[in-house]
Each structure stands twice: as structure tokens, then as C-alpha cells.
């Protein structure tokens, strides 16, 4: 009665014209995004994270827990769990892929770059560094969905800010 869903795949609805399955130019629902949503490689519970933080969009119910394993200033592992819309989950998966094996400073730079892209201020050259995440560029045109795309990155930013601050404090000792 109240929307409990058990159905998975339905016959008959996939006979849509091919072009309708792929999005109009500027859409955020690209093949890459749909792939990351359907098969998120980085959506699992990490065994021994050094950092964990929860990010929530209260108005949509997007809720992810991001975990990092940072060793000697390198993000050796990034993973997340939680639930949310395709945009929030795919964006988090793309992000985890991008920052894995990167130094903390590089992860921070990419994070800032992503936010710059969302504000519509990144150059084409800068966008190249973001790889698949650059496909979310047009989210800038959908203000209602910006916070979905940003969720993973905002959560990462909080962790990195803490991590960098802790490192700085250690060096100063």
C-alpha cells in the first residue's frame, strides 16, 4: 500500500527508441553516471578506515558515510555506504575512484576544483583533471540537484580539512 517495492525488471518498458535512452546534450544522466550508479565499485564497508564522516541532505534523504584510509599522506583507500539518488551515489563513486592513491593535498585540490566546476568557474583545462567527474558539469544548470552531486565531495572536504589540520598540528610539534 505505501510503496513497498519488490519489482526489479519489467518486460515491455525497454522497447523505447534508442535515442530516448540516452540523454539530451547537457544532461547529467550520462552513460558514465548511470554505470557508476548501477555498479558502484567503491560502495562497500571499509575494514580499517582512518577517517569516517557522514554526509546528509535532509531534504532529499541522501545519506552517505564516506571512509578513507590515509597512510603517510596518501589516500590508499576510499569507500562509501549509504543511500541516495543516482546523482549523489554516482558522484561519490566517481570521486572515490578519482582520489584513490592520490596524496591528501591532491585530493583537496580536486575537491576544490569540483566545487569550482559546480559554480561554473572551471576552465576546460581544469576540467580534464576531474576525469569522469567533469561529466557532472551541467549540474550547474540544475540548482535543485547541485547538493546531490556535491554530497560526497562536501563530505570529503570535511574529512580532508580535519586531516590536513591534524597533519599541520603534528608537524608543528
Amino acid at each position: 500500500m505505501f510503496g513497498a517495492c519488490s519489482t526489479t525488471k519489467t518486460e515491455g518498458v525497454l522497447n523505447l527508441p534508442r535515442e530516448r535512452l540516452f540523454m539530451a546534450e547537457g544532461s547529467i544522466y550520462t552513460a558514465a553516471l548511470m554505470e557508476h550508479n548501477a555498479h558502484p565499485d567503491y560502495k562497500y564497508e571499509m575494514e580499517h578506515p582512518t577517517h569516517t564522516h557522514e554526509g546528509v541532505n535532509p531534504s532529499c534523504g541522501d545519506d552517505i558515510i564516506l571512509s578513507l584510509r590515509v597512510v603517510d599522506g596518501i589516500v590508499e583507500e576510499a569507500a562509501f555506504t549509504g543511500s541516495g539518488c543516482a546523482v549523489s551515489l554516482a558522484s561519490a563513486d566517481i570521486m572515490a575512484d578519482l582520489i584513490t592513491d592520490e596524496p591528501v593535498e591532491e585530493a583537496k585540490r580536486l575537491c576544490d576544483l569540483f566545487m569550482k566546476m559546480i559554480r561554473g568557474e572551471a576552465t576546460d583545462e581544469e576540467l580534464e583533471d576531474l576525469g569522469e567527474a567533469a561529466e557532472l558539469k551541467s549540474i550547474a544548470l540544475m540548482p535543485a540537484r547541485v547538493k546531490c552531486a556535491e554530497l560526497g565531495w562536501r563530505t570529503l572536504d570535511t574529512i580532508l580539512a580535519d586531516s590536513i589540520q591534524a597533519e599541520t598540528a603534528k608537524e608543528e610539534l
Binding site: 517495492c5 526489479t8 540523454m23 547529467i28 539518488c85 546523482v87 535543485a144
Partner: peptide, 18 residues
């Protein structure tokens, strides 16, 4: 009011908007 199984309402709405 309704839900599409396994698909977030915001995705449903964004795609319907297209």
C-alpha cells in the same frame, strides 16, 4: 503520490522534466 521502485524520486522528477 507514488514511487518508482529502486529509483529516487529526485531522479524520477529530473528525468521526467527532460
Amino acid at each position: 503520490s507514488f514511487n518508482v521502485c529502486g529509483i529516487h524520486p529526485h531522479d524520477v522528477s529530473s528525468i521526467l522534466d527532460m
